[in-house]
Design a protein around this nucleic acid. Structure first.
Lengths: 230, 230
DNA sequence: GCAAAAGTGTTGCGTATACACCCATGG
DNA sequence: CCATGGGTGTATACGCAACACTTTTGC
């Protein structure tokens, strides 16, 4: 009769060691003992789903390290979680900058999204969804800021985008696109060159670290106004 | 702890009489008696949220008339619905082609999204979200098919897009964009001219009536492949 | 000076916009 | 033959991809 358990889950993604990875913890007990599952838990009585996922993630990582959190979708197949009580899940995408290595509990670790271990319930589908959402938003928003350190070289940024998208991105054009859109600004400082020399790379930062749509109307724009994003 | 009511709600949108309208029904009882609210109801034990919203909408309209349904977001503020039991809602966007005038119950009618009557709960926010989602998807997917009749003239299609987007769209460019992307095809037939003459308009149809992303990577495309939408 | 890495200039192409012009019908 | 509405042709603008070339360092 519409009464059901409600849980929140998050696919927390980070580019680590050159690949896009997701934070998972290993279940100790049934159901699905030893399988890997997404962090999260039951929705509390006095919180909405976003407050809830932030609270739950606080048990795994320092919440201030989460650079971005957004709702993905509801997963509600009646039998998605075995047992007497039916459980509906609200899934989130969470992002952590690559410059941070969060301290995580012992049962928790990171896995490349392209090589997940045996996953519990429908969590693999949730990770796929998160991955797809991130790739899409990298091209029409400024979410890049959520993967990047406060300051970075273009090469480093290129590596992040490549890892998240799963294919090589040109550093040249990446810089141009992000600059033209006004997302990137030079800090003035430069990074030291590598051991084999080379021109020192300039450091950049994202102008804003709030999610913003940067390519609002690919086509069918309103007549004259260009800078509307609403 | 995590046990809550779960309801599904849909903002069913249709272009009627030149404006984008939403289907609402007037509450007879408290809470929020006489205010207007979105169709929907409690999630059943044996259905997922999408099956549920389709079932609930069947009580209002012929489900076959729904040309598109998609999840919007979860609305979960603890006090969004007054009363003892906490109610979490999964909101959907539903679309009906403008050629159909569904028979609706007596307590139900259509209102322009730009001039909503006093709305129940957080339903106004849900309508805003639906409207925004529709506008966004009109520019990078083929959702247009869900607003349009099986066959239509370019002028008629222009009127639909203009109503849904809230600003004038050029018929010339609309046709070009949709044609280049391979979404539109001519039926060969023409519509009779109006009472004051004029060249008879050619009839078109959408090639596919399944949702598809048509502008997958605004930028940052994978190197060579162009037709990837995954 | 040479190799390596970073960044800029230039060109070409694909796609969208704007606007003029041609087409087909009713009166 | 004129007014009305429909459709196409053409010029222009803009943004991204590709690639060559210049800049700045270590050895």
């Amino acid at each position: 009769m519409g009464l059901a358990g409600h849980e929140v889950l998050a696919a927390v993604l980070q580019v680590r060691a050159g690949s896009l990875q997701v934070m998972l913890w290993q279940r100790a007990r049934e159901p699905h003992a030893h399988r890997w599952s997404l962090p999260g838990g039951a929705l509390g009585d006095r919180e909405d789903v976003e407050a809830s996922i932030r609270r739950q993630l606080a048990e795994k990582v320092d919440v201030r390290q989460l650079s971005h959190v957004e709702q993905l979708a509801v997963f509600s197949a009646p039998s998605r979680v075995p047992g007497g009580t039916r459980v509906v899940a609200t899934a989130f995408l969470g992002l952590v900058p690559s410059s941070i290595d969060p301290v995580v509990p012992g049962d928790t670790s990171w896995y490349p999204v392209s090589a997940l271990p045996p996953s519990a319930f429908d969590h693999e589908a949730i990770v796929r969804r998160a991955r797809h959402r991130l790739a899409a938003k990298l091209s029409y928003t400024n979410v890049g800021f959520a993967l990047a350190p406060p300051e970075f070289t273009i090469s480093a940024l290129r590596a992040l985008y490549s890892a998240a998208l799963g294919y090589k991105v040109s550093a040249t054009n990446l810089q141009r696109v992000l600059s033209r859109r006004g997302l990137l600004e030079a800090t003035g400082a430069t990074a030291p060159p590598g051991p084999s020399g080379g021109r020192p790379a300039a450091l950049f930062r994202f102008v804003s670290r709030e999610m913003r749509v940067t390519d609002p109307f690919a086509v069918l724009r309103p007549p004259a106004a260009r800078s509307v994003d609403s």
